[in-house]
């Protein structure tokens, strides 16, 4: 085995899980931290009995990142046995501005996990939320987004609860291996304890960096607060105001297309975008 292979695949009798974690950024102060959704993804992995979890991060290997990543290693709290916690976090070292997708695909092909968990989108970098979809495309695996709970895993099929708006849940079963993304509907991550975080193993694995050429051409500027459309409520009584505030938003102009060909769907989306002025008509 070459020296830079640092992740071992899970033993045959245990479910192999890979959790992709990123370096987060506090919304108020911009300090690096463990990313909230990724931490929830790891929390979800810890809740699955009899699993073997590997933590993967592709990015720069510097002191600030290390401190933030160690936050994941500090998540040992609730389970006394701790058999499910990852022994170490593997950093797949990448140059600044690299596209981490190929490196992650390689690592996952090597690791062959049955379940890949990650947050919906990163708190730093592009944060486009595209990574899990691209991974699924490259690996040819199914992807389920916005999962709140993994109910059971048996015979290569996982039963998941997907979070929908307004607290609704949808039970799905997905053939493994699969990529599952987690958003804020999933249970909150347990606190990160200083001692285990400091002791936890952090292994650095060198990997070729693929420069992200498209991104290098972009111009990035700090985001401006966008004006929000005011919802004008002309209600006379408190009851009406309450109803207006609590009512479901009426998607008046929307329509549900089922069982149509991709072309018709794409045309409908294009038409909507033109109508909203996003695309030039």
């Amino acid at each position: 085995m070459p020296p830079d292979v640092l992740v071992e695949s899970a033993p045959a009798d245990r479910l192999g899980i890979a959790v992709l974690v990123s370096v987060g950024r506090h919304p108020l102060t911009g300090r690096t931290r463990r990313a909230d959704q990724d931490a929830r993804a790891y929390e979800l992995a810890l809740s699955i009995a009899g699993a073997c979890t590997a933590l993967l991060h592709a990015g720069q290997n510097d002191a600030e990142n290390e401190l933030a990543l160690r936050g994941y290693l500090g998540m040992v709290g609730a389970s006394e046995s701790g058999e499910n916690t990852a022994e170490r976090l593997v950093v797949i070292e990448q140059a600044i501005g690299a596209d981490v997708l190929p490196a992650l695909v390689n690592a996952l092909r090597e690791l062959t996990p049955e379940l890949v968990l990650c947050g919906m989108r990163a708190e730093t970098g592009e944060g486009s939320g595209m990574l899990p979809y691209l991974l699924a495309e490259w690996l040819g695996w199914p992807i389920v987004s916005g999962v709140a709970q993994v109910e059971s895993v048996s015979d290569g099929v996982a039963t998941l609860l997907q979070a929908l708006p307004r607290g609704q849940r949808r039970r799905l079963s997905v053939r493994l291996p699969a990529i599952v993304t987690v958003d804020s509907a999933a249970p909150g991550a347990r606190p990160s304890a200083f001692g285990p975080a400091r002791r936890g193993g952090l292994a650095v694995s060198a990997a070729a960096s693929m420069p992200d050429e498209a991104r290098a051409e972009w111009l990035t500027t700090p985001a401006r607060k966008r004006p929000r459309r005011l919802k004008i409520i002309t209600a006379l009584s408190a009851r009406d105001r309450f109803k207006a505030a609590a009512a479901k938003t009426q998607g008046g102009g929307g329509k549900v297309l089922t069982g149509v060909s991709p072309e018709i769907g794409a045309e409908a989306i294009q038409a909507l975008l033109k109508e909203e002025g996003v695309l030039p008509s």
Binding site: L28, R31, R33, G77, R190, S192, F194
Partner: peptide, 18 residues
């Protein structure tokens, strides 16, 4: 070591850090 500070205590500590 255990990381089992009661919930609101965790929130306070995380706020202090961030």
């Amino acid at each position: 070591e255990l990381g089992v500070t009661p919930r609101r205590g965790v929130e306070v500590i995380e706020n202090l850090i961030a």
